[in-house]
Simulated assay, not measured.
Amino acid sequence: MTQWARALCAVAVAVMTAVGATAFVAQADSQPYVPALGVESKYFQPGPWAVIEEIGFGCCDATGSKYDLWYPTDLGAGGAQHPIVVWGNGTNAMPSRYAYLLRHLASWGFVVIGTENQQTGSGRDILGSLSYLKGLAADPATIFFGKLDTAAAGAMGHSQGASGVLNAMAASDGAIKTAVPIEIPAQLWCSSGITCADSRKLTSGSVFFVNGSADRFISPSTQALPWQAVGLQSNQAYYEATATSVPKVWATLDGPDHNDVQGQPDCAHASTPCTSGVDGYLGYPTAWMMAQLRDDAEARGAFRTGTGEFLSPAPNWRNQSSTVSR
């Protein structure tokens, strides 16, 4: 059993002992989200770590914005070295808008940091949040000292922040190992003051593109004309334009619209317009981070070309594509 696995087991016991915007009328789900049996089901469930949320934990990024953090309560339990996930907000959103998803990631042992900057498309301040957290990990006066795996950092973001995490990874000189862009905007939105990304600039790392089937306006699945002629106007185009040397996956989640990732498990409890809620974004994106940052063989196998669980006909998903070969 690896040190990481021992830590998970130790914390699972501890947790089981310890745990007994704009107003609108949300549309409730007709049916709850049911994950596929196997890897998605495993990582759809909350992980074994209790989680601390700290809003306005520290200051500041290049714009003067504070950082928000989600991290395991018992940092370093069992000798664990926690991987890092840096978060990128959608336009005019704050990390707290995504608290359900970010808390879920932290429950699987990740330390998650997001700048409160509401314009993250350049990736500059997303990358800056990684530097900030690495500084805490090197400071003996902080609770993070010696407890983070600073060589295992990934990035996840929504909308403009999805563009931001690609830009941050491209500029990170390998420090960001993987990215999960959720609802990445078509490049036509760049003319509206939104900073976009170009996946052709990725030369290292790995990427998992995720979009919702109802998001046909901002982050469509496909486009009528080839991207070589009209640019990256769809998730399929971003996926196809990414170099073959970069392991990549793309899939469309059935049901969600552009902002569902900001929600709670169902739309009845969401704080933003919502179609089906955040549930579908929990299992496979978490598994991807476990595969890429913790070398979780079971999770990695789910995305493997030809044989992976995720690539067979899967409930809730369509357009599954992958170049992951091992």
Rank of each mutant, 00 (worst) to 15 (best):
V19Y: 09
Q27P: 01
I52N: 13
Y33R: 06
Q31P: 00
A62M: 03
Q31A: 15
A50M: 07
L37Q: 11
G38Q: 06
W49R: 13
D74F: 07
D68V: 03
Y71V: 02
V25Q: 14
L37D: 08
G47T: 04
A23E: 11
S30K: 11
Q45E: 14
Y33V: 10
S65G: 07
G47A: 08
T22N: 04
K66N: 09
A77V: 12
I52E: 14
V51Q: 06
G47K: 03
T22R: 10
G47F: 05
G47R: 09
A28P: 15
I52H: 05
F57G: 03
V34K: 12
Y43K: 01
V19D: 14
V51K: 08
Y71A: 07
F57W: 12
C60P: 07
S41P: 01
K42R: 14
A23T: 04
S65D: 10
D61R: 06
Y67W: 12
A77D: 04
G56Y: 02
T22V: 15
G56N: 11
L75H: 03
G79M: 08
G79F: 09
I55D: 02
A28N: 13
L75T: 10
A21V: 11
P46H: 01
G79D: 06
I55W: 02
Q31I: 12
V25C: 09
A26L: 04
A50W: 01
G20F: 05
A62I: 00
A21D: 09
S30G: 14
C59K: 11
V34Y: 04
D74L: 14
G38N: 06
A28R: 14
T63C: 05
P35Y: 03
S41T: 01
A26V: 07
V34I: 13
Q45S: 13
W49H: 13
S65K: 06
Q31W: 02
Q27S: 12
P48N: 01
W49C: 15
T22C: 06
K66E: 10
A21Y: 09
Q45R: 08
E54Y: 03
E40L: 04
V25N: 12
L75F: 05
L75P: 01
S65H: 06
L75W: 05
C60A: 10
D74Q: 09
D61E: 05
K42T: 15
A23G: 14
C59L: 08
C60K: 06
A36H: 02
Y33L: 07
G76P: 03
G64M: 02
P35G: 03
D29F: 00
W70P: 00
C59W: 03
D68K: 02
Q31M: 05
P48G: 01
G64P: 02
Y67D: 03
S30N: 11
T63Q: 10
I52G: 00
Q27L: 12
P72H: 10
I52K: 13
I52A: 09
S30H: 07
Q31T: 13
